[in-house]
């Protein structure tokens, strides 16, 4: 069964067609790669799936159409995500960052919090325990009370994944989780992604430039260039696809370098 299904999805920003007529299906519990050169439209696809922008075409998550849904609703449906340019709750502690993601599961609402009822304390203890377990998975538990921005870049990226996992998502969208990681860290990340998928029985969609990670962990890969689909298939096929090779080689030209700078500024 399909976890996520895109049909003829397009998105325009003014005159720019950031995503055009993209269709793909992500099988349930798969690790799916979405790749392409800078400015290809990968992050935009994530933003469309998570309700940041509206879109043309159709996107369905399981049986639910995502048309017109707001980001918070989509998160509650079970889609968690991380961001290419890290978005933590800066002045909050590491633990608090993770705790925010369980607000939708909370049984003790505002009234219970104001009365400080037994339910409130039980809830807080439960949530903190779950959050600490997740932090332990990402080896962040000893930093639980640090302010999140005091963490190293790699730890901030891991904290973002932990926060997304606190949603108990059915699907996890990772936007360049390996950015800035060295060889060893990237290998660790590969292991972690596989482990998360198996342990929590989730579907993972991965946007990544690091080919060591993409080719090593993805079962299926969809390639975009200038908003359009140029290839789709298993890693072995994608590695040899002439269109893919051409797109990645063309990346070094001056024109692409400019759109790269623009993409960095525009994408949330």
């Amino acid at each position: 069964m399909a976890a996520l299904d895109l049909k003829h999805v397009s998105k325009r920003f003014g005159g720019l067609k950031a995503v055009s007529e993209v269709s793909f299906t992500v099988p349930e519990r798969s690790i799916f790669g979405l790749i392409g050169p800078n400015g290809a439209g990968k992050t935009t696809v994530f933003n469309l799936v998570t309700g940041v922008y509206d879109f043309e075409g159709s996107i369905t998550f399981g049986d639910t159409s995502l048309r017109g849904k707001k980001p918070a609703q989509i998160a509650r449906l079970g889609i968690g995500r991380t961001f290419q340019n890290i978005r933590l709750f800066q002045s909050l502690t590491v633990l608090e960052n993770v705790l925010v993601a369980c607000e939708k599961r909370r049984r003790a609402h505002l009234g219970a919090a104001l009365l400080r009822s037994p339910l409130f304390f039980r809830d807080e203890a439960d949530m903190a325990e779950q959050a600490m377990k997740l932090l332990a998975i990402f080896k962040l538990e000893h930093m639980a009370d640090e302010i999140s921005t005091s963490l190293s870049y790699g730890n901030q990226r891991r904290l973002e994944i932990a926060r997304a996992m606190m949603l108990k998502p059915k699907m996890l969208l990772l936007d360049e989780p390996a950015a800035g990681m060295n060889y060893g860290e990237a290998e660790g990340l590969k292991e972690q992604i596989r482990w998360l998928r198996d342990e929590f029985e989730i579907t993972v969609v991965l946007v990544e430039h690091n080919m060591q990670v993409v080719m090593g962990v993805c079962e299926d890969i969809h390639v975009l260039d200038h908003g359009e689909t140029i290839a789709h298939g298993p890693p072995d096929k994608i590695k040899k696809d002439p269109k893919v090779l051409a797109a990645y080689l063309g990346e070094e030209t001056e024109e692409e370098a400019q759109s790269e700078a623009a993409a960095g500024e525009a994408s949330p």
Binding site: A72, A75, F83, R87, K104, F120, P268
Partner: peptide, 27 residues
């Protein structure tokens, strides 16, 4: 009690980063 509750935490999260807060279900 408002400040040190899940609600207050979510409100502060929203203040720090609205996009990220919405992405974890805080409307």
């Amino acid at each position: 009690r408002l400040k040190f509750s899940g609600w207050g935490r979510a409100l502060r999260a929203l203040r720090e980063n609205e996009v990220a807060a919405a992405a974890v279900g805080v409307d």
